[in-house]
Design a protein around this nucleic acid. Structure first.
Length: 439
RNA sequence: GUGAGUGUAGCUCAGGGGUAGAGCUCCGGACUGUGGCUCCGGCUGUCGCGGGUUCGAAUCCCGUCACUCACCCCA
């Protein structure tokens, strides 16, 4: 019997969970500082809720759930595991619009599922940490989201992250200029997005392979490929259509509003950034560090997604951080605080003989009500083995009531780090341990 | 969906046609009121699975599955 978890899924042992909870704690804390409220939604959505929101590739990767009953034979699916947290949010906003504040700001940390092939930093079940702001078209939203994301990475100890920004409107304008029509735009964008990986020649080849004329690649590369001059954004945007000039105006807004925020020093404009999800309509972002090929997070504006559920257009913008990728990089770089290797208990109560156990449980209860974490050794055993066990578990104190202590009403407390051992009155044990722990 | 690499003890891995190995873990002992260090002893295997070649396969060949990495795409 294979005892491993299913492909792309993972078990989290206590040490893993501590690390995950630490990072999630930092993220939730920062988001709350910006006034975002928590939201949770079901793991399972109606299939039709998810389909057609992510683009062709995304649809293919949705984990579907067979219809119960006869559907199990026909292979028909009517439910699916959620693919991201953004579409469920859009559904929630469409459903509860009247009850939610005019500017709904929510954060959400939950697992999502994708049926693709696992590799480094990529799993079939993984946590996303989303923040989104609903209801405003102002670039203040973008600036605050980027600042919150930057705060998260700074607080976790990252110094070298970059937040890359671009705009779908700008990309659309440039594609129009190059004469790329609606259906081909996705494919062209995906290729342009790889510019920094495969270079200009790689882009030319791949565009040719996908059936684009060489002039198209040429126009796109001349617009997107060359290093943007530092003042590119300040230029009038000649040659761009109206959509493109509006996009430039929004990008200017994001950069100028971010000047005084924590995101400011980490922002880069990358006119070739495209992002795959089809629901983005305006600004788009991606968080990168040099040691990971993929991104640590991404997001953007999706002003039409909620309208796909409710009919009326509600502006929205958000960022999603990938918990697993953050953990992968933090692990490789040894960025976790040493306190996370903390011990499971402050003191272990050893069992001298079986008949004592009821009394030892009451000693443990006393220590616990004094605020200590207490592990009870569950059975009478050789005392040496009990010490060895405490030592292996990194528990800093062991309390023993042997024959001698029983006779004079004391508790022997051994400090496992220094090896010192002393007898204490029962009532004084907790105070002694606490004073040593707090240094 | 495509490609590459790796599957040997609970874990990390060596062995590349001739009896299945090491380190760590675990268990016992030296040390029956005390862990870490040391020393001694011990347990554990369909060598991923199926087929083929061979007198003989963990080893060579074919297939298959799993994992890892890369591509695609993405957090």
């Amino acid at each position: 019997m294979n005892t491993g978890p299913a492909r792309g899924m993972r078990d989290f042992l206590p040490e893993d969970v501590r690390r995950r909870q630490y990072v999630i704690g930092v993220i939730a804390d920062v988001y709350q500082r910006y006034g975002f409220e928590p939201l949770e939604t079901p793991a399972v959505e109606n299939l039709e809720t998810l389909q057609g929101k992510y683009g062709e590739e995304g649809d293919r990767l949705i984990f579907k759930i067979l219809k119960r009953g006869e559907g199990a034979e026909t292979g028909q699916a009517d439910l699916a595991l959620r693919y991201d947290l953004t579409v469920p949010l859009a559904r929630v906003v469409a459903e509860y619009r009247a009850r939610l504040p005019k500017f709904f700001k929510r954060y959400q940390v939950q697992p999502v599922w994708r049926a693709d092939r696992p590799q480094k930093g990529r799993f079939r079940e993984f946590y996303q940490c989303d923040v989104d702001a609903i209801g405003s078209r102002s670039m203040v939203v973008e600036a605050e989201l980027l600042a919150a994301a930057a705060d998260v990475f700074l607080e976790l100890g990252f110094a070298d992250f970059r937040i890359v920004v671009n705009h779908r409107g700008l990309l659309n304008a440039i594609l129009s200029q190059a004469g790329v029509a609606g259906d081909d735009r996705g494919a062209a964008l995906v290729i342009m997005d790889k510019l920094d990986k495969i270079g200009a020649n790689g882009v030319r080849e791949e565009m040719r392979a996908k059936g684009f004329r060489d002039e198209v690649a040429g126009t796109l590369l001349s617009q997107l490929g060359a290093e943007a001059p530092a003042d590119w954004l300040e230029r009038p945007g000649d040659g761009l259509n109206e959509e493109g000039r509006a996009a430039m105006q929004e990008l200017r807004g994001i950069f100028s509003l971010s000047k005084g925020t924590s995101a400011g020093p980490h922002l880069d404009l990358d006119r070739a950034l495209a992002r795959g999800l089809s629901y983005y309509t305006g600004s788009i972002f991606e968080v990168r560090v040099p040691d990971l090929a993929g991104s640590l997070g991404g997001g953007g504006r999706y002003d039409n997604l909620i309208g796909m559920f409710s009919g009326d257009s509600v502006p929205a913008c958000g960022i999603s951080l990938g918990l697993e990728r953050i953990l992968v990089v933090m692990g490789e770089r040894n960025m976790f605080p040493p306190a996370l290797l903390a011990t499971p208990a402050d003191v272990m109560v050893a069992v001298w003989n079986e008949g004592q156990i009821a009394d030892l449980l009451s000693l443990a209860a006393t220590l616990r009500s004094a605020g200590l974490r207490v592990e009870m050794y569950p059975e009478a055993d050789k005392i040496g083995k009990q010490f060895k066990y405490a030592s292996a578990r990194n528990i800093p104190f062991v309390a023993v009531i042997g024959d001698e202590e029983l006779a004079n009403g004391t508790v022997a407390v051994k400090n496992m780090k220094t090896g010192e051992q002393a007898a204490h009155a029962r009532a004084a044990v907790a105070a002694h341990i606490k004073s040593v722990i707090s240094g």
